[in-house]
Amino acid sequence: MSSEASRRWRLMLGRYAQDKLGGLPGQDGARDEALDFLYRREYAARGIGGKEGSLDPTQLTALSWLNQSRALFPGDVFETLQGDALNRYGLTELLKDPDVLARIEPRQDLLPVLLGMHSRAPDQLKAQLRAVAQRVIDQIMERLRPKVTRAFSGQRNRFARSNVASAANFDWRATLRDNLSRYDPDRQRILAERLRFNARVKRRLPWTVVLCVDQSGSMSDSVIHAAVLAAILSGLPGITVKMVLFDTSVVDVTDRLTDPIDTLLSVQLGGGTDISRAMRYCETLIDNPTRTVLALVTDFFEGGSPAGVLASVARLAEAQVVQLGLPALDDTGRAWFDHDLAGKAADLGMQIGAMTPEHFAEWLAEAMA
């Protein structure tokens, strides 16, 4: 085995490989110590290590570990370590020091931890915790707002032309038709001289969007994106947004939509899932069924009554409410969900699709066209 391969294996396996692979000098030794401080918790959880003299824990504190790790590892590696410390191993003492909070990197995967700490933090730290959480929300908002606004900027009108040159309005059919005479056989391509763009028709009839969001622990990213999307949508003309969070209880947060942090502070991630109860509540919020979209964000693992869920879906379908079911609403668009219940809901008229927030905005805009 090469010396570099041996070094990498030693860092990966930690001090338990010291007898076979030896120690690590210099900065690698400090890296080994920093990794051991965090990941020995994995061994401890599996009953490995005990109180043997050679396996005594390091003398690092959470604060010194954070500072040391920031200097020892590249930025992306440090962010992974920081996320594991907070999310996986519960080193919430990292958030109890104002100096740590001032330097912490704002990342979306830390947001549930930051919000969960808020209610338990000393009063002097609550404002700082909220400020860090706000920086994360601002990043998500800055990324999503232009995409959502563009999706709702108007329905394309193929019978009217526009002087506004944008990719969203580009009419490739008309452009191809108008430039067929400019085909270059040598290059085997059309040299387009005139580009055509569609005009857009502004929506004037009002719509109501009811966001019914599962706040169980597996849905944390979806809850965050739903809160941001609700804030953006509520600022668009002609759209009324209502938002309900649920686990085994139901919380209506419609009055807090302009501030996603206020919405998210209403969330207590975890607990069971009673989709049926949430759907029945959402039915009471619908005044004009044919101008309403109900978006159910859940993994469809029902802890209550699956029959009750399907009964609500059937009633809403009969009333001509547009129903969208989202097993995931996050940056990956991948989901693990109950295909059986989701499939039965789809058979009754609910459209099902896990997707990213920007694709959901496009899907929602099409549903309201």
Score class of each variant (00 low, 15 high):
residue 246 F to T: 07
residue 276 S to P: 01
residue 86 L to C: 12
residue 328 A to D: 02
residue 331 D to Q: 15
residue 300 F to V: 02
residue 164 V to M: 07
residue 178 D to P: 03
residue 97 D to P: 00
residue 61 T to D: 11
residue 174 A to L: 12
residue 142 E to R: 13
residue 293 V to Q: 03
residue 193 E to I: 12
residue 237 P to V: 14
residue 113 V to W: 09
residue 23 G to R: 01
residue 259 D to Q: 14
residue 65 W to V: 12
residue 295 A to F: 06
residue 256 R to L: 13
residue 258 T to Y: 10
residue 204 R to I: 14
residue 348 L to Y: 01
residue 240 T to H: 08
residue 152 F to E: 11
residue 168 A to P: 04
residue 67 N to P: 00
residue 181 S to H: 14
residue 233 L to S: 04
residue 356 T to F: 07
residue 133 A to K: 06
residue 348 L to V: 06
residue 36 D to C: 04
residue 270 G to T: 10
residue 109 D to I: 06
residue 165 A to V: 04
residue 186 D to T: 13
residue 129 L to G: 08
residue 320 Q to L: 05
residue 312 S to F: 08
residue 83 G to Q: 10
residue 249 S to L: 13
residue 338 D to C: 05
residue 71 A to C: 05
residue 15 R to K: 07
residue 266 S to F: 00
residue 207 W to M: 05
residue 325 G to E: 06
residue 39 Y to W: 13
residue 153 S to E: 15
residue 276 S to V: 06
residue 264 L to A: 08
residue 52 E to C: 11
residue 20 K to Q: 13
residue 49 G to E: 10
residue 353 G to H: 07
residue 325 G to I: 05
residue 85 A to M: 10
residue 237 P to Q: 11
residue 291 R to F: 00
residue 299 D to Q: 02
residue 34 A to S: 15
residue 363 W to I: 03
residue 58 T to Q: 15
residue 361 A to T: 02
residue 294 L to A: 04
residue 156 R to N: 04
residue 157 N to R: 01
residue 246 F to V: 09
residue 300 F to H: 04
residue 48 I to Y: 14
residue 366 E to Q: 13
residue 81 L to S: 09
residue 15 R to N: 09
residue 62 A to H: 10
residue 273 T to W: 15
residue 361 A to M: 12
residue 231 A to V: 00
residue 318 E to D: 05
residue 123 D to C: 04
residue 286 I to Q: 03
residue 129 L to Y: 00
residue 93 E to W: 04
residue 348 L to G: 00
residue 267 V to A: 15
residue 144 L to Q: 01
residue 298 T to G: 05
